[in-house]
């Protein structure tokens, strides 16, 4: 059995915990999500472990449901960005020519505009629904994945074994999925972790600005926004979701770091 470094272990446990809470939010949460159970900003008590929020809902419950919303949106957006980004990236790398040029220049164009501003503009024009949020985040993030997967695949396409497959008469599907993908997987998996973190931060930012998840649903960014007014009066309710965002980002990062360091060995082989 391979030894997992301590930092990666901590990251794995925390990430696992966050995902567990997110998946089983309905079973774990002590109260209903939008149930008024106390006064405004009640302090921490046995009934309300994190106190209550700006209108008297249980903050722990809000946090648990917030985890579900945050992680769901971030996960969907990451998957969307990976599928589109890597498929198009590999296609551009293997096809070359005008297709590569067209895709790459289009991606350059999108990346030239700051992502936050571009998404704010799009989100003011369309309805802010969860689906639209995921689509906007996923496609904008796909530009980054495209860049990476194209760069990785361009290196692999010039290898003799890809030429050998081409000489054998293999189709593009086999070349992409059997020759290139297994060799490009390691950097892509590491990138997956990082993109997930960026998605979490991004959805939190959007919600904090009011263009993300809409009430009564709330993600962590939205919770920070709802409770931020309390900070002026010394009420720490906004800190809990903020800490949760940071903790999730760091724990996923620890895992991603470990995956990355494992796969950058120069040994070749399976990289296992």
């Amino acid at each position: 059995m391979r030894r997992i470094p301590l930092s990666a272990l901590i990251g794995l446990i925390l990430t696992g915990g966050f995902f567990f809470v997110a998946i089983f939010a309905q079973l774990i949460a002590p109260y209903k999500m939008d149930e008024l159970v106390g006064g405004v900003w009640d302090p921490v008590s046995a009934a309300h472990w994190l106190g209550t929020d700006s209108i008297g809902r249980d903050l722990l419950t809000r946090m648990i449901y917030g985890a579900q919303v945050t992680i769901f949106v971030a996960t969907c957006a990451t998957i969307l960005s990976f599928v589109t980004g890597s498929v198009l990236g590999f296609l551009a790398a293997t096809a070359g020519g005008w297709l590569d040029q067209a895709l790459s220049r289009f991606v350059d164009l999108l990346m030239a505009i700051p992502t936050l501003i571009l998404s704010l503009v799009i989100l003011t024009a369309v309805d802010v629904t969860t689906i639209n949020l995921i689509l906007v985040m996923g496609f904008l993030d796909a530009t980054r994945v495209f860049r990476l997967s194209r760069a990785v695949a361009v290196d692999i396409t010039v290898m003799d074994y890809v030429e050998a497959a081409r000489l054998r008469g293999e189709g593009r599907g086999w070349i992409i999925f059997s020759e290139i993908l297994p060799n490009a997987l390691s950097p892509l998996v590491a990138e997956l972790g990082l993109r997930f973190i960026f998605a979490v931060l991004f959805i939190s930012t959007l919600s904090f600005l009011g263009l993300g998840v809409q009430p009564p649903l709330a993600d962590w960014g939205g919770l920070v926004k709802e409770n931020s007014a309390g900070l002026v009066y010394g009420i720490p309710a906004a800190l809990a979701p903020a800490i949760a965002i940071a903790a999730l980002a760091i724990s996923v990062n620890l895992v991603a770091d470990w995956v990355l360091s494992r796969t950058t060995s120069l040994k070749g082989g399976r990289g296992a």
């Binding site: 054998r168 297994p182 070749g268 399976r270």
Partner: peptide, 26 residues
């Protein structure tokens, strides 16, 4: 290459200088 038949491809094989890069490491 694209317009060759499968038999043309099969009957003409190639071996490379660097066996390392001629085989998919995975």
């Amino acid at each position: 290459l694209a317009s060759r038949t499968k038999d043309d491809l099969r009957e003409l094989q190639m071996i490379y200088q660097m066996a390392d890069t001629a085989m998919n490491p995975r």
